[in-house]
C-alpha cells in the first residue's frame, strides 16, 4: 500500500538485462547461477511447500464439500431447507447487513478524519481502531455480557426499560461489529493517506461543499478499496463464531447464526446437515477470495503514482 520501492524497478533489468560484471565473473569461474538453487532442490522445496498447503488447507476445504454431498443432493437440500437452518441463514444475513453498514459508515468517517487532517495522537488512534483484531473473540463476547448481561454493569437500567441485549439480536450485532471493527477503516486509511489532500483542497477552493467534495472526489478515488474492505468485513461477519457464541444464548430458530447452527448439528452427530450448512459458508469464503483476487488488480489503479 505504500510507494513502490526503488529496487522493484531495478529488479527486472538486473535479471533479464545484459550480463553484469557479477554474471560474467560467475560464468568464467564456472559457478552455478548465483540467484537460484539447483533444480533438484527447487523441485523438492516446491513439493514440500505444496504438500504442506495441501495437507493443511486444501484437504479441509475439499472435505467440507465431499461431506456435504455424501448423502446425496436430496439430503443436502433437505438440510438447507430445514426451518431452523433457514432461520439461521436469515439471521446471519441480517447481522452481516447491519454490521457491514455500521463499519462502512465508521470506516469512511474515521478515514476522513485520520487521512485528510494532521493532528496529535493520530498513530494512537489508529492503534485503538486496530485493537479488536488482537482481542480473543471469546473476550469480545464476554465484555458485552459484563456490560449488558443479567449481572452486568448496566443490568438495572436495561431491566427497568425492558431492553434485552444479551441472548438477543442487539448483542449478536454488537459482538459482530466489535470483531469486524477495523476491517473497512484499515483498508481506507493507508490508501487515503497515500492519496493526500490536493484533490480535496482543489475542489474546496473551487467552491464545492464538504459533502460534495467527499461524494464526488474522495469516494470515487477509494471505491475499490472500500469494496475490498466490505468484502473482508462481510466474510468475517457471516462467519464469526466465538464472540457470537458467548452472547447468543443458542436459542434455535431465534438467536442461532449459521456458524452456531453448524456447531449444534455437529454436536448432535448430524454430520451431513452440519457440513451442508458449512458448505454454504465455505462457498462464501471461496467467492470472497475470488472477488478479492480480482479486486486487488483494481486496487493497484487507486494507488497514487
Amino acid at each position: 500500500m505504500s510507494t513502490i520501492h526503488p529496487t522493484a524497478l531495478v529488479q527486472p533489468l538486473a535479471s533479464d538485462g545484459p550480463p553484469t560484471l557479477a554474471k560474467q565473473a560467475r560464468t568464467q569461474n564456472g559457478h552455478r547461477p548465483a540467484r537460484t538453487e539447483p533444480a533438484a532442490v527447487r523441485i523438492a522445496l516446491t513439493l514440500i511447500a505444496l504438500a504442506f498447503l495441501g495437507l493443511f488447507i486444501g484437504l479441509p476445504l475439499l472435505l467440507v464439500f465431499v461431506e456435504a454431498f455424501k448423502r446425496g443432493f436430496a439430503a443436502y437440500v433437505a438440510a438447507l431447507s430445514d426451518p431452523d437452518a433457514l432461520a439461521a441463514i436469515r439471521l446471519t444475513l441480517l447481522v452481516a447487513a447491519i454490521s457491514v453498514t455500521a463499519n462502512v459508515i465508521f470506516g469512511l468517517v474515521a478515514s476522513w478524519a485520520i487521512a485528510k487532517f494532521e493532528f496529535a495522537g493520530k498513530s494512537l488512534l489508529i492503534t485503538l481502531i486496530d485493537l479488536p483484531f488482537s482481542v480473543s473473540p471469546v473476550v469480545a463476547g464476554l465484555i458485552y455480557v459484563l456490560l449488558f448481561g443479567s449481572q452486568g454493569l448496566l443490568a438495572a437500567p436495561l431491566q427497568a426499560w425492558d431492553i434485552k441485549i444479551i441472548f438477543a439480536l442487539p448483542g449478536i450485532v454488537l459482538a459482530t461489529i466489535f470483531v469486524t471493527f477495523p476491517f473497512v477503516a484499515r483498508e481506507l486509511i493507508p490508501l487515503m493517506q497515500d492519496q493526500g489532500t490536493a484533490e480535496e483542497e482543489a475542489a474546496i477552493s473551487l467552491g464545492a461543499s464538504g459533502f460534495s467534495t467527499f461524494f464526488r472526489v474522495t469516494l470515487p478515488n477509494v471505491k475499490w478499496a472500500l469494496l475490498y474492505g466490505v468484502l473482508l468485513c462481510n466474510a468475517r461477519a457471516m462467519g464469526e463464531f466465538g464472540a457470537v457464541s458467548v452472547v447468543s444464548g443458542h436459542v434455535r430458530g431465534l438467536t442461532n447464526t449459521m456458524p452456531l447452527h453448524i456447531e449444534i448439528l455437529y454436536n448432535e452427530y448430524q454430520f451431513g446437515a452440519s457440513f451442508a450448512v458449512a458448505s454454504l459458508l465455505a462457498l462464501l469464503a471461496l467467492v470472497t477470495l475470488i472477488a478479492k483476487t480480482i479486486l486487488e488488480s483494481r486496487l493497484a489503479e487507486e494507488e497514487p503514482r
Binding site: F271, S274, A285, L286, K292
Partner: peptide
C-alpha cells in the same frame, strides 16, 4: 484460513 469461518475449519 482468513476467509473460512472458524467453525467450518473446526469441523473439517
Amino acid at each position: 484460513p482468513f476467509a473460512l469461518p472458524t467453525a467450518v475449519a473446526g469441523i473439517a
